[in-house]
Design a binder for these strands. Structure first.
Length: 126
DNA sequence: CGTGTGATTGTTGAT
DNA sequence: ATCAACAATCACACG
């Protein structure tokens, strides 16, 4: 019997209270090569973070109160701002979801790693 | 018709 | 340990 409430971590995450990294300001050189059509059967995608789960719920509420909003950049900022102002307890709820998601993803990652060693070392033979 | 971009933060993977 | 890139949300605009 595992209660999610016990998942209340002493600290949200290492990154949450982590001080601004010294000497590292640029955190987004993002050339986004979107592989349209390239599907990797391996390489399990990263599970949505707690922030995204929150955004999913927040987005719906936001559009209800702001149907005129196009959604995305404005919501993104709104979410981010709200997220930072959110109480830790409220965030834990979403963190908890992400925690379970990570566990599942972790297994997928191990299996992916295993398969890669199994005989997929040379993925360039096709 | 199809895809890339726009900002948000968290999370994971690799060096 | 620390960087770096990617994860979804929608709507529009360009080729």
């Amino acid at each position: 019997m595992k209660t999610r409430s016990q998942t209340v971590w002493p600290k949200p995450l290492r990154t949450l209270e982590l001080e601004p990294r010294p000497g590292s300001h640029k955190r987004r050189p993002r050339p986004r090569p979107k592989p349209a059509g390239k599907g990797d059967p391996r390489a399990p995608k990263k599970p949505p973070s707690a922030f995204f789960y929150f955004m999913d719920d927040f987005r719906k509420t936001y559009q209800q109160e702001n149907p005129s909003v196009k959604s995305l950049q404005e919501i993104g900022k709104a979410c981010g701002e709200k997220w930072n102002t959110m109480a830790f307890e409220e965030k834990v709820k979403y963190y908890d979801i992400a925690t379970e998601k990570r566990a599942e993803f972790e297994k997928a990652r191990i299996e992916y790693n295993k398969k890669k060693e199994s005989g997929e070392l040379s993925e360039e033979s096709n």
